[in-house]
Design a binder for these strands. Structure first.
Lengths: 218, 218
DNA sequence: CTATTACGCTACTCCTCAGTAGCGTAATAG
DNA sequence: CTATTACGCTACTGAGGAGTAGCGTAATAG
């Protein structure tokens, strides 16, 4: 019945099909439009007519590639790929500079768009159970993992004391958690100052071993 | 005409209308069912037929009280009220105990249900712009404010040094941010251990001034 | 009892949106 | 040129869901 998943993989590279070829460049437009719309509206309110209009493609063209709306969004998630920092862990010499390097990463169009995409995907995860796993595996976990590895390397380097190792898993969540919370509870944008405050007022101080153990126990 | 917003306020307390009276007890059922469903599905997938079925009321009865779905959810948000801690700031003697008292608060059915409701409302805020403001003003901000006041009182008490005052606004966000992030990025429940880890490994350490070179006691 | 008003129920209207059919046209191969 | 395949467009189907109409019944007041 034709439709969906154009040959691509099933085509030997030497062979060439007759007829008008798939416009692969259009795929990128469609997936980008999908992500953009997800930053603006909830998953259920993003219609395929919207996507088609924004991408400048016909709705039927979209359905020739992906069978359902879920498939389209799933493809958009896969198109995100992993943050480049997964392969290329920044190494600026200090923990603070490394953290800022991840924040300033141009991945997904830089911090402003990236945090909006995260928020959109988080909402999509609530609407479609199948999407939730894909988002967690493909996006959330790899991203948090970058922070985790940066923190662990700071320990290896001797910049942070060994005993802080147990805190690393929870500290790796802080920047994503705080920025997500900000973007979803305020209407304003999240500025760089905010990330810096999270780093300097929360993350880094939390990596200093306890000085007085008396004041907190009861 | 008629419909929506039964007299209630417009009725002098002495007077009594003829006819079958409004079943006020049913309102609670309806609003609770609405909140429950919002913890399970995204706002757009909660139907009024669902609410009616769950509350054990007829859909038409719901529409006799609230004109639209948004009005219903708005009423559900108002029914939440403010956390009791706003009026009765816990005072357990130590900052740590105060924080735990807020976490363990039975408000909204205790921590487990409360965090699910927060997540549901966050998603609802993305679906309806009008709801977003109500949620922020009625729920999010008052709740964060409780943490803020607890932290400030710890400073007043002398338990936390004055110089940490600038960190308070951002630290007040930590517990809500971290728990929201947890519940929306994992499928598991959020346990008390997690809150304790946030307090002991993040919040409290971040309130200790930097003492880098000086030596530790304890 | 009668009058009044709320409730439950069934059935409806209307609209949005996912997904499809079919046709004319554009782009390739030979 | 012909054959083939993708694209854009208009129009459609079908389902789900917000909101309504109308009727029979339940609960109050007098």
């Amino acid at each position: 019945m034709a439709g969906h998943s154009p040959p691509a993989d099933t085509l030997k590279s030497g062979e060439r099909q007759a007829g008008r070829p798939y416009d692969r460049s259009g795929d990128g437009m469609i997936l980008a439009a999908t992500l953009d719309l997800l930053t603006e509206r909830s998953y259920d309110r993003v219609t395929l007519d919207d996507v088609a209009a924004r991408a400048g493609k016909a709705k039927t063209t979209i359905y020739r590639r992906w069978a359902t709306k879920d498939d389209l969004v799933l493809a958009a998630i896969h198109s995100i790929g992993q943050p480049p920092e997964v392969a290329d862990l920044p190494d600026e010499g200090t923990l603070r500079a490394d953290l800022l390097a991840v924040i300033d990463s141009p991945w997904l169009g830089g911090p402003a768009r990236r945090i909006l995409i995260f928020a959109g995907l988080t909402s999509a995860a609530r609407s479609s159970a199948g999407l939730a796993d894909a988002i967690r595996l493909q996006v959330t976990e790899p991203y948090v993992d970058v922070y985790r590895r940066i923190l662990e390397r700071a320990i290896d380097r001797g910049e942070v004391p060994e005993q802080m190792a147990t805190r690393v898993p929870i500290l790796a969540d802080i920047i994503p958690a705080m920025s997500s919370h900000r973007v979803s509870t305020t209407s304003e944008h999240v500025h760089r100052d905010f990330y810096i405050a999270v780093i300097d007022d929360v993350l880094l101080p939390a990596l200093v071993p306890k000085v007085t153990s008396s004041s907190e126990e009861a």
